[in-house]
Computed example of a mutant assay.
Amino acid sequence: MRIEETAIPGLLRIGLDVKPNDDGWFKENFHREKLADLGMDVVQHNVAYFAELGIVRGIHAEPWDKYLSPSSGRVFVAIVDLRDNETFGRVETFEFGPEQALYVPRGVGNSFCTLTPHTTYNFLVNEYWSPERVTVDLFDPALAIDWPFPRAELSYTERDAANPSLDQVRTQRA
């Protein structure tokens, strides 16, 4: 596991060892002790499968830390700091597959777009799911996220399409 800090405090990009074999590959995606060293005690593992490319979800900041990694396919990930601090609104984007993971601290918004069909995405979290979260508009011009496909070609939920702007989130926190 190779850990790289990012411009968002607490957001870590993690390189995973993927070992090719005769049948495909093997990776250690979860190791309790290694994640505990990051301050994460995993209590729930969620898996989402996406059949098509261009599926977008987010931007959601939940009250738990997340460890994210695809086990198949590739994703474009946009992360937004939604914590009430000096890096509020800062955006980081990544493209990765099974060889990488992200550690996203609570209060930092996560979104992703599938880049390949048949993408399977793993979410390990350190609190049980609850509906509490802060959301922001995927297409807010203030974020200037350069999605990998034109908006008209993306598939997203009506719920995500109704997320507030970054300015509205800032005002709600004031």
Results as ranks from 00 to 15, higher is better:
Met1Gly: 10
Arg2His: 08
Ile3Gly: 09
Glu5Gly: 00
Glu5Ser: 04
Thr6Gly: 11
Thr6Asn: 04
Gly10Leu: 11
Asp17Ala: 10
Lys19Cys: 07
Asn21Ser: 01
Asn21Val: 07
Asp23Val: 13
Asp23Ile: 14
Gly24Ser: 06
Gly24Arg: 10
Phe26Met: 15
Glu28Phe: 12
Asn29Gly: 13
Phe30Ser: 04
His31Phe: 14
Asp41Val: 15
Val43Ser: 03
Asn46Ala: 14
Asn46Gly: 01
Ala51Pro: 01
Val56Ser: 11
Ile59Leu: 06
Ala61Ile: 02
Glu62Pro: 01
Trp64Cys: 08
Trp64His: 05
Lys66Trp: 12
Tyr67Asp: 10
Ser69Arg: 09
Pro70Asp: 07
Val77Asp: 07
Ala78Asp: 09
Val80Leu: 08
Phe88Ala: 04
Phe88Met: 02
Thr93Glu: 03
Glu95Ala: 00
Gln100Thr: 08
Leu102Ala: 09
Tyr103Glu: 00
Val104Glu: 08
Gly107Arg: 00
Gly107Tyr: 04
Gly109Ile: 01
Asn110Val: 14
Ser111Pro: 08
Ser111Thr: 05
Thr114Ile: 04
Thr119Gly: 06
Thr120Leu: 13
Phe123Gln: 01
Phe123Thr: 08
Val125Pro: 03
Tyr128Thr: 09
Ser130Glu: 12
Pro131Trp: 14
Pro131Gly: 09
Arg133Ser: 15
Thr135Glu: 13
Asp137Val: 04
Pro141Gln: 09
Leu143Gly: 05
Ala144Ile: 05
Pro148Lys: 02
Ala152Glu: 10
Ser155Arg: 06
Thr157Tyr: 01
Thr157Arg: 05
Glu158Leu: 13
Ala161Lys: 15
Ala162Val: 07
Asn163Asp: 10
Pro164Lys: 09
Leu166Val: 13
Gln168Lys: 12
Val169Gln: 07
Gln172Ile: 09
